[in-house]
C-alpha cells in the first residue's frame, strides 16, 4: 500500500542538505564574481528549462519575512510566472508575494531585469539555459575550463570580428557575453542587450542558476560588468526607432525608455508595448 506522507512536501520543497549545499555554492559564486560554480542540481517538480536552476537558488534563500516577485519575459501574469508563483505559495507558505519590484527582497526572473532597476539589499535570481559563453567556440568542457582560468577569450572576440566582417554588425542579440570585473566572461542569461548595462556596478546582487547544466554564478553589487566589444565598435542596446528616427513609445503607457515587445493588435497592425508588465501597468494607472 502506498501511504501519502503526512505533509507531502517540506518547507522549501528541497531537503535541508540540498539547500545548504546550494547556499554554500552560491557564496562561492559571490566570492569569485563570474566564475561558474558546479553544483549537484536536483530534479525539481518543474521540467528542466522552466527555471529549475533559478528555483533551487530561490528555495535555498527564501524564508519567513521575505517578499517575492516572479517575472517571466517581463510579465508577472504569464503562464510560467503564475505557475512558479503558485509553487512558491505551496512550498514556502509564509513568504509574501508582490508584483512591485521595489518591494521584493528576492525576484526570480526569466529573460528580463525589471525596468525600475534594483536597489541595495535586493537579490535578482536569473534563470540560465546555457551558462558558458565559450560553448559557441569550444565544445569541450575541460578545455573551456582552462580558457576561463586563463582569461582566454580571444576566440569569442574573433566571433565578434567575423560578425562585423560578414554583416557589418555584431549579430549577438541576447545572452551577450559580458566580462565580470576584468576576468571571467559570463553568459548573462537570455536578457536583451537593453538589460546588460544594469548589471554594471549595480546596487543589488545578481545570482544566475543553470539547473540542467548544474552551474551557479554571480555578479555581486559594485562589480564591473562590461559587454565584450571593440574600442571603435561599442556595444549597442536594441533600438526602437521608427522610420523618422524617433524613439517609439509604448502603445499602452507611452514610455520611451523601456524595452518593447512587438505585437499585432486585433486589426493586424504592428504595435510596440513594454515587456515589463508591472512597470507598464503602474505608468498607465498614474496617467489616469
Amino acid at each position: 500500500m502506498i501511504e501519502a506522507p503526512a505533509r507531502a512536501y517540506q518547507y522549501g520543497f528541497l531537503d535541508e542538505y540540498a539547500k545548504k549545499e546550494i547556499r554554500r555554492q552560491t557564496l562561492k559564486a559571490v566570492a569569485i564574481p563570474g566564475y561558474q560554480v558546479p553544483y549537484a542540481s536536483r530534479e525539481m517538480p518543474l521540467a528542466r528549462g522552466f527555471g529549475t536552476g533559478g528555483l533551487q537558488i530561490t528555495l535555498s534563500l527564501l524564508g519567513p519575512g521575505d517578499t517575492f516577485k516572479v517575472i517571466d519575459q517581463g510579465a508577472d501574469d504569464s503562464v510560467n510566472a503564475v505557475n512558479l508563483r503558485k509553487f512558491i505559495v505551496e512550498a514556502c507558505p509564509d513568504v509574501s508575494l508582490t508584483t512591485r519590484a521595489e518591494d521584493a527582497t528576492i525576484i526570480q526572473t526569466r529573460h528580463r531585469v525589471p525596468e525600475v532597476g534594483m536597489s541595495p539589499g535586493q537579490i535578482l535570481v536569473l534563470q540560465v539555459p546555457y551558462p558558458d559563453p565559450l560553448v559557441v567556440v569550444e565544445p569541450n568542457e575541460a578545455k573551456r575550463k582552462q580558457m576561463h582560468g586563463e582569461g582566454d577569450y580571444a576566440r569569442l572576440l574573433v566571433k565578434l570580428y567575423e560578425d562585423l566582417v560578414n554583416f557589418g554588425e555584431i549579430t549577438i542579440s541576447h545572452r551577450y557575453p559580458t566580462r565580470i570585473h576584468g576576468h571571467y566572461v559570463i553568459d548573462p542569461s537570455p536578457i536583451p542587450r537593453h538589460d546588460v548595462p544594469r548589471l554594471h556596478m549595480a546596487d543589488a546582487l545578481f545570482l544566475f542558476g543553470a539547473g540542467r547544466e548544474k552551474r551557479i554564478y554571480a555578479v555581486p553589487p559594485f562589480t564591473r560588468a562590461e559587454p565584450l566589444a571593440f574600442e571603435d565598435v561599442p556595444f549597442r542596446v536594441e533600438h526602437f526607432f521608427d522610420d523618422t528616427g524617433a524613439r517609439r513609445p509604448c502603445a499602452r503607457c507611452g514610455s520611451r525608455e523601456s524595452f518593447l515587445d512587438e505585437f499585432l493588435d486585433s486589426y493586424g497592425r504592428k504595435q510596440f508595448g513594454c515587456s515589463d508588465s508591472d512597470y507598464c501597468a503602474r505608468r498607465q494607472e498614474s496617467r489616469r
Binding site: A47, R48, G49, F50, T52, D72, Q73, G74, S78, V79, N80, R110, H111, R112, P129, S173, H174, R175, P190, I191, P192, R193, R212, E238, F259, L260, D261, E262, S275
Partner: peptide
Amino acid sequence: GFCQHYKMPHYVTFQS
C-alpha cells in the same frame, strides 16, 4: 525538460 521549454514564450529574446 529542455525540449519542452521551447514551448514557453520567448518574446524578449525573439525581439532582440
